[in-house]
Computed example of a mutant assay.
Amino acid sequence: MAVDFAQEIKDLRTTMESVRQVVDVDALKQQIGELEQQSAAPDLWDDQERAQQVTSKLSRANAEVERIASMDSRIDDLEVLVEMGTEEHDADTMAEAERELNALKKTVGELEVRTLLNGEYDQREAVVTIRSGAGGVDAADFAEMLMRMYLRWAERHGYPTKVMDTSYAEEAGLKSATFEVNEPYAFGNLSVEAGTHRLVRISPFDNQGRRQTSFAAVEVVPLIETTDTIEIPENELKIDVFRSSGPGGQSVNTTDSAVRMTHIPTGTVVSMQNEKSQIQNRAAALRVLQSRLLLLKKQEEDAKKKELAGDVKASWGDQMRSYVLHPYQMVKDLRTEYEVGNTSAVFDGDIDGFIEAGIRWKRSAERDDA
């Protein structure tokens, strides 16, 4: 069937217009001007942490404006290419135009998904915690597979990550792991990954080769910022120190540098062992604890609003995805119905399709609730 280029280009321009409105390019350009003034201040680097925040925000804002301008320019170029190919009846030019159209639809679609990330904390960086669930050693192995999947996803996109804590299981895999994804909108993207993940496969740890179902839980919270007000009184904290351990329980250092921090009122526990000193691990643990309490506070507020509105729907995201490696191969999201047959690619970080479908599904569900 022939491609209706005129309609496709019109649709692309309509989508880009909605992207511009949500991003608010004029406000972004104003912010760039203010950040440029701050970055030009002679005393900027007297406070290195603030200087890095300013330069990083400036770089991201410029990249956002350039990305939108680039899309507009590419759509204009596509229109010219189609006109040339049509006038000259040039099949090669039209084939090139179709390839560029498909590439543009994919990129503009990704930009459109970004506009759906308008929640209170969606712009934040993310703290991800993965815990093995039912399924013994298979579940611990599955938790490690999921951690690798998310780290590879971040690597594919060039997003910086930092592993904060790893608690190894005795035989193989992980009891739990916590890592940061230090990229704007990491929380908005990864928040749809929160919930219970299920793996079905022939267990590599069963000498009789039986099929095993195992589970792992994924928690995603927004990274705390200096402007957030989550004060935790000292008397609400219980702090234990211990030696960091590696795979198989082996000690990886000779000092009690690892920290376990418990928030007594909520029972929230955070462990940190990947920094070099106890002071650094304590600071990292406090930041992750504050991030979790921030989200907890938001969830309580949202639950109260739903209660007042008479909403009795269960919260989304409990058992949310199945990874089946036997008797057939398929990864399927149980909320969005999005599925793929290439399980190896998924475990290698190719999860953008699941994330995009999850964001669209979540926003649609929120509109229905409104």
Rank of each mutant, 00 (worst) to 15 (best):
128 V>C: 03
354 F>H: 05
335 R>E: 12
142 F>P: 00
311 D>R: 06
162 K>Y: 05
149 M>Y: 00
313 K>E: 14
150 Y>L: 10
333 D>P: 08
152 R>W: 07
297 K>H: 13
110 E>W: 08
201 R>W: 10
274 N>K: 08
108 V>E: 03
59 S>Q: 11
344 S>P: 00
224 I>R: 05
200 V>K: 09
153 W>N: 00
139 A>D: 02
329 Q>Y: 04
108 V>F: 04
91 A>Q: 13
91 A>H: 10
100 E>S: 12
341 G>Q: 10
249 G>T: 03
202 I>R: 12
101 L>F: 05
58 L>G: 01
89 H>M: 12
262 T>E: 04
347 F>V: 02
77 D>I: 10
346 V>R: 04
361 W>F: 15
195 G>F: 06
322 S>D: 14
222 P>H: 02
111 L>V: 05
178 T>A: 00
266 T>M: 05
84 M>N: 11
283 A>K: 13
183 E>C: 11
341 G>S: 11
86 T>M: 04
167 S>V: 11
61 A>H: 09
312 V>N: 13
298 K>W: 12
192 V>H: 06
302 D>F: 09
328 Y>W: 06
228 D>V: 07
168 Y>I: 00
258 A>N: 03
320 M>T: 14
258 A>R: 03
113 V>H: 01
221 V>M: 04
181 V>F: 03
284 A>W: 02
110 E>Q: 14
156 R>M: 09
144 E>K: 13
258 A>P: 05
46 D>M: 09
117 L>G: 00
187 F>Q: 01
27 A>G: 15
268 T>C: 00
339 E>P: 00
95 A>V: 04
267 G>Q: 06
91 A>Y: 06
35 L>W: 02
295 L>C: 02
293 L>N: 01
104 L>T: 08
246 G>S: 04
130 I>Q: 02
16 M>C: 06
140 A>N: 08
97 A>K: 08
245 S>P: 03
311 D>W: 03
265 P>G: 00
322 S>R: 10
256 D>T: 05
250 Q>H: 14
309 A>W: 05
149 M>C: 08
62 N>W: 07
82 V>I: 07
158 G>Y: 01
343 T>C: 03
235 N>E: 14
284 A>K: 09
278 Q>T: 05
273 Q>Y: 03
269 V>Y: 00
366 E>K: 13
366 E>N: 08
88 E>Y: 07
303 A>T: 13
292 R>H: 07
119 G>W: 06
356 E>F: 11
78 L>G: 03
319 Q>S: 09
296 L>G: 15
270 V>P: 00
301 E>I: 10
101 L>E: 02
238 K>I: 08
42 P>R: 08
38 Q>S: 12
97 A>N: 07
174 L>S: 03
80 V>N: 11
276 K>E: 14
115 T>S: 15
324 V>H: 05
93 T>I: 15
185 Y>L: 11
139 A>W: 01
67 R>H: 12
7 Q>G: 10
225 E>N: 12
265 P>R: 04
48 Q>R: 11
135 G>L: 06
205 F>D: 04
168 Y>E: 04
142 F>Y: 09
224 I>C: 08
236 E>H: 14
14 T>L: 13
284 A>C: 08
190 L>M: 12
151 L>N: 01
230 I>Q: 03
26 D>K: 14
209 G>S: 09
